[in-house]
Amino acid sequence: MSKVIVVTSGKGGVGKTTSAAALATGLAQRGHRTVVIDFDVGLRNLDLIMGCERRVVFDFVNVINDGIRLHQALIKDKRVENLFILPTSQTRDKEALTREGVEKVIAELRKEFAYIICDSPAGIERGAQMALYYADEAVVVTNPEVSSVRDSDRILGILNSKSRRAEIGEEPIKQHLLLTRYDLDRVQRGDMLKLDDVLEILAIPVLGVIPNDPLVLQCSNVGMPVILEPKSKAGQAYRDAVARMLGEQVELRFTQPQKRGLVDWLLRRSA
């Protein structure tokens, strides 16, 4: 049984593509055949984050509109077995996606992949609605700040009303919260919302809390999903999230202040 999972948020710049890349890579590392699709037509980024931008020949839009076969557009990841990327077009716009075209591609991918991760564009318009329409589950990426939480609430409403499952009256899309850029120091100072504050408003189960980590940006810049960087706390948190997605019970990390050792304290003072 394959699962279509949309990674979405409403708001831009909260870490959708980073998260989609990390989750897809993590699922593939765990031995599941996984493909990640870039739905952000015209603002393609996924191939950059995945480090395959120089191997793109055909893309998602070509498959839908130009008679290109799916296998000509799929890019196999060089680092992780079982991982494929379906990049998108930089020159077209969201109108290039049709519901019938997306349905055909997803139906074909379902035949051979266990997980189909859809990296949604920001916003709530056509592009985002196309990305979530065929989803079975949704990962709602949220930053611990008010505007991001509001936009996530909005997208949760759209998941409940404008998805295929909602329209044909099937069991609703399973929703998960992925709280990213969680900066404990700023949370404790009250500059950022606490996990509990976010949960009170959104009221959906937590898939993971990803700590703010400078390595995320470094990894993005060299085209490596952060989950492949063992030193990164964000990477560890993404691995936990993948485990939870696979039904394992893993305790949340990086949400409670840790006791600081003397060395840590001295380092902070001198910093």
Binding site: R150, D153, R154, L156, I201
Partner: peptide, 26 residues
């Protein structure tokens, strides 16, 4: 179910009972 931002629920007749949060913008 929660009523999310951007959603509308209208009971054109009678009362409306909501057992879940009504979000900002709903």
């Amino acid at each position: 179910e929660p009523v999310r931002g951007g959603q509308q629920v209208v009971a054109g007749e009678g009362d409306l009972v909501v057992l879940a949060p009504v979000g900002h913008g709903a």
